[in-house]
């Protein structure tokens, strides 16, 4: 399942993994069942090199300029940004809530860290999401194994460093099993300071 659909061009800088961009948008009044979630999420393109990433990314709307209830997802190629995907099933995510106005800059920093392999947790990272909501925006980074505390702590510490978060900022971790159970991405999270 590591079949690459795109390859780096001549002279380009290859990425450790290929990544795929996804976009989703939903009407907030409608319940987010897993079926309607899958119908609302669209694959928009894959990249294999740093240069391909910039060409693609430069044509995307900045997340902070999106309206309504929408998400950009950047996941390793072959991993669907869904709790149920084989690679995500035993995983979870770190959540960072952002006040309005910060999403574009923080999103860029989190994905550059991911593409550049700054997390140093082997194969653990699955992808990153920026979620545009009405009151606040939310960044998350998903990993494969929610009960591996060495990994989750290292991801948290790397996030603090690459996003330059104050040491007392609140970060929350939520397992995908819990998200499936309450059918919600961001409710009832375990808070960690």
């Amino acid at each position: 399942n590591r079949r690459r659909t795109v390859c780096p061009g001549a002279g380009e800088h290859p990425l450790q993994y290929n990544y795929t961009f996804w976009y989703s948008r939903r009407t907030p009044s409608r319940p987010a069942s897993s079926q309607s979630y899958e119908q609302n999420i669209r694959q928009i393109g894959s990249v294999a090199s740093v240069e391909q990433f910039w060409r693609f990314y430069s044509h995307l709307v900045r997340p902070g300029d999106l309206s309504g209830h929408s998400d950009f997802h950047l996941f390793k190629e072959g991993i669907k940004p869904m709790w149920e995907d084989e690679s995500n099933r035993s995983g979870g995510k770190w959540i960072i809530r952002l006040r309005k106005g910060l999403a574009s800059r923080f999103w860029e920093n989190i994905i550059l860290a991911m593409l550049g392999e700054q997390f140093m947790v082997g194969e653990e990272i699955c992808g990153a999401v920026v979620s545009i909501r009405f009151q606040e925006d939310i960044l998350s980074i998903w990993n494969r194994t929610s009960n591996d505390q060495t990994t989750t702590s290292r991801i948290r510490d790397t996030l603090r460093r690459v996003l330059n978060l104050p040491t007392n900022s609140i970060m929350e971790y939520k397992t995908h099993t819990d998200s499936l159970r309450d059918n919600s991405s961001f409710r009832n999270t375990k808070i960690s300071i």
């Binding site: 061009g9 740093v50 910039w54 430069s58 550049g116 392999e117």
Partner: peptide
């Protein structure tokens, strides 16, 4: 094998290279 690591500064430099346009 070897892991391909890039820091933020390097990635931002690649943005302005002709290959990325």
């Amino acid at each position: 094998g070897t892991r391909i690591i890039y820091d933020r500064k390097f990635l931002l430099q690649c943005r302005t290279s002709p290959l990325a346009r």
